[in-house]
Amino acid sequence: MKTRKKFFTKKNGFIFAFLLPGIVLFGIIYAYPLIDIFITSFTKWNYKNFLQPEFLGWDHLFDNYIKLFTVDKNFMVAFWNSIKWVILTMVVQIPFTLLVALVLAKKPRGWRLTRNAFIIPNIISTAAIGLIFLNIYSPSRGIITEVCNWFVPGSNVSVLANEGYAFWGVTFSFILFGGSSCLLLLTQIFSIDASLYEAAKVDGATGIQVDRLITLPLLRPMLGTVAVMAANYGLLLYNEIALITQGGPDNATYSLSYYIYKTALGSTKLNFARGNTAGVIQFLLGLVLVGMINRAFRTNKVD
């Protein structure tokens, strides 16, 4: 006769006891705020009813969402900018970082120095990076204006005061800094069984063939992880914008994170409901992106 396995064993009890603090902390720090943000996105909540959010009612349930997508131009700019930054990290940062990792993995002369130099921007605070770029872009003392004046005398380009340029100004303040991702990729490359490379060498494979047919396929799960991290950075971009452009000029560099801050706390109206609604959209967007990237890179499947 089959005996039913007991769930409430001492062993399970201990496991649960050790997991409990983590579960409770997760509930308080992540789950509760997330649920709260979701619920308050269906309320009216600003400085007038700071202590008591008011439910919008079933007839007006999606008013905050509708307003964001129909009348709030700043939100739409932030929404599309965030998507653009995610795409740019995918098509610029990840390939560039991968290329650097593949080159460094061959251990050319000075590879350690290059690796360390590549990681430096990632260990400097984004506040310092922001200040550095502010100076680079400054029309009165920045190098960009000087360089533009060499090519087009008198052009006096002011990167951060021009709608078209400012977006790219913010983008270049983070897009090439893939040091952390490069380290992860390098570690993964170095952990690939050396006998595979030796066999390829014996078979007369070229360097590019080795990278294409051995390294890249085996790098796929880590590449997926790195892509998720980079996409999230693009989606959650805040520090660079707060420090370099404050969303300007003409709100052309708003990101979703910056919009949320400006709407909820950076305004005397303290529109928490609208800010939280944007937060829900950002969260959902993040979920979709992670899902898509995981699917594209099949990160949960091992060859």
């Binding site: 200040l131 502010l134 400054s138 029309p139 009165s140 204006t145 380009v157 404050q246 300007g248 000029p249």
Partner: peptide, 18 residues
């Protein structure tokens, strides 16, 4: 000219120092 027009923000005080 553009060199005398900054993007604004707390750190942009060139108009003052000039």
């Amino acid at each position: 000219d553009a060199a005398n027009f900054g993007p604004g923000g707390d750190d942009d005080e060139a108009y003052r120092s000039d």
